[in-house]
């Protein structure tokens, strides 16, 4: 059975006062994860197939085609640990 560790290489807080969290997907899984997230989350807006602003379970986040997502205002990894399995697995 797959776990988040199979798909995510790093979760870290951003540097700066915004205190958002960046999730970096494993390089060889990024296309698969991006597809899944785009199917499951609500699209608010996007630009050139590179940046997507999405909503899921009351959280707004930005997804990048390079395989990263920023969750703004999310300071705790625990919050993400609840959302990410539903978004990715």
């Amino acid at each position: 059975m797959s776990t988040l560790d199979d798909f995510i290489s790093r979760i870290e807080k951003t540097c700066g006062e915004e205190k958002s969290t960046i999730v970096t997907f494993k390089y060889n899984k990024k296309a698969e994860i991006t597809k899944r997230i785009l199917e499951r989350a609500k699209m608010n807006r996007s630009l050139a197939g590179i940046i997507y602003e999405l909503s899921f379970k009351g959280k707004t986040f930005r997804l990048y085609a390079s395989g990263k997502a920023i969750f703004k205002g999310v300071k705790e990894k625990e919050v993400l640990s609840k959302i990410l399995p539903e978004l990715i697995l």
């Binding site: 951003t14 700066g16 958002s20 590179i50 940046i51 990048y64 390079s66 920023i70």
Partner: peptide, 12 residues
């Protein structure tokens, strides 16, 4: 936009 948005967009 946050600086991280700009950096991630440029990274693409």
């Amino acid at each position: 936009l946050s600086s991280h948005d700009v950096a991630l967009f440029a990274d693409n």
